[in-house]
Nucleic acid binder design. Sequence first.
DNA 1: CGGGGTTTTGGTCGCGACGACCATAACTTG
DNA 2: CAAGTTATGGTCGTCGCGACCAAAACCCCG
Lengths: 252, 252
Amino acid sequence: MTTKTKREGMPANYDPSQFPAFAVTVDIVILTMSDGRPHVLLVRRGVAPFEGMWAIPGGFKRPTETLDEAAKRELGEETGVDSASLLTQFGAYGDPGRDPRMNVVTVAYLAVLRDVGAVVAGSDAAAAALIPVSDALNGKVELAFDHAQILRDAVDRARVDLDHTGMATAFVGPTFTMAELRAVYEGIWGVHLDGANFRRTVVAESGWVIPTGRRARPGSSGGKPAELFRAGRMWKLGGPIRQPNERRKADS
Amino acid sequence: MTTKTKREGMPANYDPSQFPAFAVTVDIVILTMSDGRPHVLLVRRGVAPFEGMWAIPGGFKRPTETLDEAAKRELGEETGVDSASLLTQFGAYGDPGRDPRMNVVTVAYLAVLRDVGAVVAGSDAAAAALIPVSDALNGKVELAFDHAQILRDAVDRARVDLDHTGMATAFVGPTFTMAELRAVYEGIWGVHLDGANFRRTVVAESGWVIPTGRRARPGSSGGKPAELFRAGRMWKLGGPIRQPNERRKADS
DNA sequence: CGGGGTTTTGGTCGCGACGACCATAACTTG
DNA sequence: CAAGTTATGGTCGTCGCGACCAAAACCCCG
């Protein structure tokens, strides 16, 4: 994600100003798990256009930085998080008129955080909040620009990344229980997974999780204290859990 | 893939010119199958920089069109193909200095053609050719800008799209044999698939392929004439063949 | 015209993954 | 201590899928 490309047969004495100029921004869809359901970090716009509506945090790319660097910088400015806890580009959006003020092309990133902590509102943001993705997708929360589409694409991307990459561990803390990890899959995919089978497949081969020996404190509802694990290095290559393939229906 | 996003707390009386201006281009990685191996359409640069080197065809985005429209337009200009035969965006590239002349961010698309036919070189292209992706990736063919990276990403994307989407049928003609379809998977994944098993899983449930009743002419090497199929509508939702998961090795 | 070669296509078999389900352990609260 | 709740281990049946074999339908060549 670095080079640019240009038409090969460009006149040697071309004038850059004769080609259309765009502003390039970077938007970060920040996902996190809260009480078993995925949430997204949104900021409330304080000025026109779309004043008062919610938007995905983002900002302008600088000519001296790469897109990835711009995304990391914006992530830090918005949340105070500097860790590169999973930051993947998933789409570019450049419809004419998507910003009524000027021609803007935005590159969208998906960030996964295990804990947003103190949500640092940007200096120019009126407010920031964690909102359930379900609320943001079904129109309960109005999104500015084409951010509804961007969020939809981000969630779609998260769903497929969950069984292709080791994204799941980015949602949980450095140490976690099987129930926590399972909640990630269940929340993102919207399915129910059997606890026993889940544990078996994850623990089956080494490299996925490493027992810490310690145990988590049971919740207020009681129950056997869960074993605490650390993420193994195998997660770098993709997770052990695959999305249950909803049986493809045959049709006459 | 349409809207743009902007920082929410923009000053109301901002001056667009005070934000960095970028040129936005669209690059199309055009893949096709030739003698069982994937090939990519490249153009030879006629002017500096990178004069004489090969490049991925592309061009400037216009402010009045979407990114997808720009990609389709460029595809038509380069190949004369107007059919929307699978055109998916897969990445944006904006490293500073990737084009020595100006700040350019490019949005890369992957196009799959079953037959490039008469390769129409762009008006400003010195030449265009179909080159085996293996040659383009291992340095046998020098690529301009960061196009080597873009091509690598495109091929990676094609590999995962092959078992998630119905991309396979885009490589073959409107009517095809099982061997042709299988060659697509084998060529892109670089694996060998059993012919009998392949046929079985594809024909198993209806909706994937529709027998035409006709039979293909056997090649010069003889053999039983293969049955001809048409693609069913199930391919819109993803193909029936999954990439053989190379057993994940357990490690101590 | 018959035989060898080649490709397609159908059949069988066995293993391994995985989901459904039950049972037990270990803790909570009252 | 009893009842409830969660975690974790075990069993079992089924289903997908790859490996392999065999027959069918065509080529070319003598």
